[in-house]
């Protein structure tokens, strides 16, 4: 069991914090705790929001009985089993790395000191685990970006980055699910929608799923309906 601290976060939320390094193992515990808490139907429970090394528990303020909820949460955490790896799903995301859709591909390749073909190969060969969602609706925080591809964010963020843009920022890679201002380097674009508001899970993946970027040609990209 992961070592945790439990705090009152607001007049309607508790937060569980973990001291250890971010890891898939820790995330499995956090997701296991989330599941246990969701199943426990605590009074006034609204939502559990997982992050890298914390788990936020939101309640209705009218039902926020702090002492009791602290106690019940502790009991649930002490019995928590980590989420099994078998509950993860692999998602293939088609990405077109054509320069017309990848304004920063050459910059990142140059920064890494490799040809663009090599960058595309390294970026599309890895499996990226989803640690959490946030920042934008449906945005997946991914881990495991190859060290060679780390690249400091743009000095001047773009006022608008298109939905579907695949990008690298610092030690992370990700896909912009909706158009937004953005400071990451754009190295490609996916033709698929990363957000579907009609689904129970409006994002395409959940924490602990894995993402693989599948290179497609510009021709293939243009065949998608978008």
């Amino acid at each position: 069991m992961a070592k945790y601290s439990l705090y009152i976060n607001s007049d309607c939320s508790l937060i569980i914090e973990f001291e250890e390094e971010i890891s898939l193992e820790l995330s499995r515990f956090i997701l296991g705790a989330k599941l246990a808490i969701e199943k426990a139907s605590l009074e006034g429970f609204v939502e559990a929001v997982p992050a890298y090394n914390s788990l936020l528990l939101i309640f209705e303020p009218k039902a926020f009985q702090v002492e009791r909820l602290l106690q019940e949460t502790k009991e649930l955490l002490d019995k928590t089993k980590s989420l099994a790896p078998s509950q993860s799903t692999r998602h293939d995301i088609p990405v077109c790395y054509h320069e017309s859709l990848a304004p920063d591909l050459a910059y990142v390749a140059n920064h890494a000191g490799i040809p663009t073909e090599e960058l595309i190969k390294l970026h599309s060969q890895a499996e990226y685990p989803v640690y959490m969602l946030g920042f934008l609706p449906g945005f997946l925080y991914l881990g495991n970006l190859n060290k060679a591809l780390h690249c400091p964010r743009r000095e001047n963020p773009r006022p608008r980055v298109d939905a579907g843009s695949v990008a690298i920022g610092g030690d992370q890679t990700g896909v912009y699910p909706i158009a937004s201002p953005g400071g990451w380097h754009i190295i490609g674009k996916t033709p698929i929608s990363m957000l579907d508001s009609s689904r129970q899970n409006p994002a395409i993946a959940k924490p602990l799923d894995t993402i693989i970027f599948k290179p497609i040609s510009l021709e293939e990209f243009n065949q998608y309906d978008h």
Partner: peptide, 10 residues
């Protein structure tokens, strides 16, 4: 909407 923060939705 109150159960979608986990998907990044405010």
């Amino acid at each position: 909407r109150h159960t979608y923060r986990q998907y990044g939705i405010a």
